[in-house]
């Protein structure tokens, strides 16, 4: 059987064949038993499918299904939540580290600049690098000692900050 004719036969069955071609296909059907059998097969398949979806039902109850739909609608309509604020402990540590550094600096300054029994101040000084306020340098010239104090955030705080960065 000619494939093009078979497709035309199908189109005739589906009501998609132009009038001009319909009569030629109908004539072919009347003469060719195999074509007529094919038409019956196509009709049977259509008939079998006709009621298929009518038996299918949603497996979830009305209430349960609606609750899911409603929840999703409400979730999408709710404005995006504000980013979560930093934990109090992290904020407290952020304040405490530089504050304690400044306090230690003041105490050291007072102690080191206190006049000794001869009335001279010790040959020592404390520097703070303006470019890096987290670093303090202490020099004791008499003892030939230099101490550098770095007060960068602790690892745990860095970790806290990283976690905060992922909150949406």
């Amino acid at each position: 059987m000619d494939y093009d004719k078979q497709l035309k036969l199908q189109a005739l069955l589906d009501g998609e064949l132009p009038e001009a071609e319909a009569s030629a296909v109908a004539q072919w059907l009347a003469q060719d038993h195999e074509a007529a059998a094919l038409r019956e097969e196509l009709r049977n398949t259509r008939g079998a499918l006709a009621e298929f979806e009518a038996g299918i039902q949603m497996p979830e109850s009305r209430e349960f299904f609606w609750s899911k739909v409603q929840r999703e609608i409400e979730r999408l309509e709710t404005p995006a939540a504000k980013p979560a604020s930093a934990p109090f402990s992290a904020l407290w540590r952020r304040f405490l580290v530089p504050a304690s550094a400044v306090a230690a600096l003041i105490i050291a300054g007072v102690v080191l600049n206190r006049p000794d029994s001869t009335g001279h101040t010790p040959a020592a000084e404390i520097e703070t690098a303006l470019a890096d306020s987290g670093a303090f340098t202490y020099r004791d010239y008499s003892a030939g000692t230099t101490l550098v104090w770095l007060s960068y955030p602790a690892d745990t705080e860095v970790a806290d900050n990283d976690e905060m960065g992922t909150v949406e």
């Binding site: 979806e53 009518a54 299918i56 949603m58 299904f65 609606w66 739909v69």
Partner: peptide, 10 residues
């Protein structure tokens, strides 16, 4: 939703 859910699911 209640009226048409079976058809949409099918």
């Amino acid at each position: 939703v209640a009226r048409h859910r079976d058809r949409i699911f099918a």
